[in-house]
């Protein structure tokens, strides 16, 4: 893992305000995004984050935040 499990959990939590605010931003840019589409996009972002976190570090570093 690239980050510790606790670190990953915190990163997911920090994504919540980003997802919530992103909807407001894109609507003001002229893209009307529904609640369901926002939720789907948020799930995809979190999924991508989890995949990145689970992948082995290419420089072989271990998370040491635990």
């Amino acid at each position: 893992m690239r980050v510790s499990r606790a670190g990953l959990l915190v990163a997911i939590v920090i994504m919540v305000p980003i997802i919530v605010e992103l909807r407001t931003v894109v609507v003001h840019l002229g893209f009307d995004v529904s609640l369901a589409e926002t939720a789907l996009f948020g799930a995809m972002m979190i999924g991508a984050l989890v995949l990145w976190a689970m992948a082995p570090d290419i420089r072989g570093r271990e998370p040491n935040g635990e």
Partner: peptide
């Protein structure tokens, strides 16, 4: 000091498992 390195990579070395640290850091954010 805990072994973190890189421009942002040091963030991974913080004690996120500790609610004392994580709570205060999120409060600051």
């Amino acid at each position: 000091q805990r072994g973190g390195s890189g421009l942002f990579g040091w963030l991974r070395a913080l004690p996120w498992r500790d609610p004392v640290f994580t709570g205060m850091a999120l409060a600051g954010l």
